[in-house]
């Protein structure tokens, strides 16, 4: 192995890291928002809302992310006539996908909050929405914090997939460097190391959160 020719391209690769982080962060915000709305729909008493949310969740969880990304890339301009840059399409695709998984995470947290909490809030005169926002969600989110952190790791890893639509993030810059230097092995080893550095802190956080999760919401 000879890393010398590859190291020259480190700044180039690191500019890809910036895009990777940008794509991950924005699709995380988008996905967690979509997920919350879907979770509330799935638990709603209005049947059509429940059905729509279930359909969305099932569809996005039952098809590969890669095909969702490519599909959106081709379909969005055809159907809407809007020609978006690759980066927003990548963010949109990853966010839509995360939404389906996040919805299930939120839902499991909401269902894990004892029913007595809702009773207590309602008997104080809170509306269903107030009870959800002030009493149930804060507890639910705390309980699913480890799962949310895991989803964040998956998202950073999945952001490599938007390289197929030429989003200039780490993976696609690595492809360029690998082709240019003809040192694929060194490039991929280095890139693996960079991803490890990006996600390792999150992985450590997941372990910590899992250990704490039980003690945070201890009930009595």
């Amino acid at each position: 192995m000879n890393f010398a020719p590859v190291v020259k391209f480190l700044p180039f690769l690191l500019s890809g890291v910036a895009t990777t982080l940008l794509v991950s962060a924005l699709s995380f915000l988008l996905g967690m928002t979509i997920g919350l709305i879907l979770a509330l729909f799935r638990l709603s008493s209005v049947a059509p809302l429940r059905w729509a949310a279930s359909l969305y969740i099932d569809f996005f969880r039952s098809t590969p992310v890669l095909i969702q990304i490519i599909w959106l890339f081709f379909v969005l301009p055809i159907v809407t006539g809007i020609y978006l840059d690759a980066i927003p399409i990548g963010i949109l695709a990853l966010g839509l996908n995360l939404g389906a998984f996040a919805a299930e995470i939120y839902r499991s947290g909401i269902l894990a909050v004892p029913t007595g909490q809702r009773e207590a809030a309602l008997s104080q005169g809170m509306t269903g929405l107030q009870a959800m926002r002030r009493v149930i969600l804060p507890q639910a989110v705390r309980m699913v914090l480890p799962a949310i952190a895991s989803a964040m790791i998956s998202l950073v890893l999945d952001s490599s997939l938007v390289s197929v639509i030429n989003v200039p993030e780490l993976m696609s810059k690595a492809n360029t460097v690998a082709g240019f230097t003809i040192r694929p092995l060194e490039v991929w080893s280095l890139v693996a190391l960079i991803y490890l550095v990006l996600t390792m802190p999150l992985a450590v956080a997941v372990n910590k959160l899992q250990k704490r999760a039980l003690s945070v919401v201890g009930g009595r």
Partner: peptide, 30 residues
């Protein structure tokens, strides 16, 4: 429901709030 107090066997205090916040929560939000 505001004028009907309710206390159940499970207490059901809000675990993410201190005792005083638990008591304040109803008057403030409702």
């Amino acid at each position: 429901r505001r004028r009907i107090g309710f206390a159940s066997q499970g207490f059901n205090l809000y675990p993410h709030m201190t005792a005083v916040r638990n008591v304040m929560e109803g008057p403030v939000t409702v």
